[in-house]
Amino acid sequence: MNQVVGNLIDLLKLERVSENQFIGRSQDIGYPKLFGGQVVGQGLSAAAQTVEGRFPHSLHCYFLRPGDTIHPIEYDVEIVRDGGSFSVRRVTASQAGKSILVMTVSFHIVEVGLDHHETMPNVPGPESFQSELSLYRKHADEIPDKVRALFTAERPIEYRIVENHNPFRPRPGIAKRHMWIRSVAALPDDELVHQSMLAYTTDYGFIETALTPHGISIGNPHLNIASLDHSIWFHRPFRLDDWLLYVAESPSTSASRGFVRGQIFNRKGELVASTAQEGLLRYLPE
């Protein structure tokens, strides 16, 4: 298995220290703050390990404090309810005795019922586009020295963005992005692995959609950007080692906060997951 993919799978497994307590390693990606998607993916993994025979269908979380890459992360899972069809878990992630994230996850048995979904946008397939990583490497001389290694390093998830442009010289446009995403290597036949890795993935490049109408780069030195909350709804089974289309749009930005929502489709055009997030977009130009 590809090493960076194997490392991510191991990162999301966690160490179980008691029935409802887990320890997660901190991933150092070359940036002092923890990547929010890591904490979301690990939190989902912790909650799922306390439930049997049911699968997560939604999660909602708030980022309370920035995490760091030095300390391990403690995950405490509270069993809120186990009903006839649904189970609910509340997860608190902490570092050095301080909470950095709270999450609620709902699990559901497998049922058959009514079925419809929105139509997948008609965009060219992933074969038509370069990977985001190749774009970053192409424009490496424009990336600040302190984060150049972060942006150009090998990664477990490949992103191919339909609206291809120089990410460090963006032009104002509509607040919508289409991103083809998939693991760079095959994944195990374990639904939780695919779900926790997608949870990890959905935080990447999401809130940046709210910057598109303003033509502001994520690397702008006058911009302070951070995820404030994150929600995911899992609608249908999927595989992250096959291409998925992540459609992100931002209907509003105001008061230094940007709101984004997303839809994720498989190659057959089925809607497999939906997302929503609000993030801090504090822009203070000189």
Rank of each mutant, 00 (worst) to 15 (best):
I29N: 15
G24A: 07
L44Q: 02
Y283T: 05
N7F: 03
F35G: 11
H194W: 07
V91T: 09
H222Q: 12
L12F: 09
V123C: 04
V184P: 03
L187F: 05
T201L: 05
E142K: 13
P156D: 14
I207Y: 05
P251C: 08
S128K: 11
R236W: 02
L240P: 08
V105K: 01
N20I: 01
G37C: 05
D229I: 04
F55R: 13
A273E: 08
I161Q: 10
R282N: 12
G37S: 08
R16L: 02
S18C: 11
P72F: 08
D190P: 02
A226G: 03
R169E: 14
G125V: 14
L187R: 07
N266P: 10
H139C: 01
L135M: 14
N266D: 15
Q95H: 08
Y31Q: 10
D203C: 12
Q195A: 06
E78N: 00
E111S: 11
H71A: 14
F238Y: 12
Q130V: 06
N220P: 04
P167N: 05
S217E: 02
N164R: 14
H214I: 01
S85A: 11
T69M: 02
P172L: 06
I23H: 09
P188I: 10
L101C: 10
A273V: 12
T202G: 04
H116S: 10
V51K: 03
P124R: 06
H57C: 02
L64S: 02
V260T: 14
G205R: 03
N266S: 05
P126C: 04
R65S: 01
R169Q: 15
I157V: 15
P221R: 02
L280F: 05
P170R: 06
I232E: 07
N224A: 13
T104L: 08
S134V: 10
L280I: 00
A153I: 00
Y200I: 07
A46M: 05
L64F: 00
K13W: 00
L223E: 06
T92A: 10
A276R: 09
I174E: 15
S227L: 00
D115F: 10
V102K: 04
H71F: 06
N166T: 07
V162P: 11
R65L: 04
P188R: 04
Q49N: 11
V88H: 12
G43C: 08
L244V: 06
P124G: 15
E191L: 13
L59Q: 12
A199I: 11
A46F: 05
W243A: 12
L281F: 00
P237E: 03
S256C: 10
F107R: 01
E208D: 14
S99C: 07
T119E: 13
V112H: 14
H117T: 13
S250I: 01
N20F: 13
H235C: 03
W243L: 06
Q95P: 06
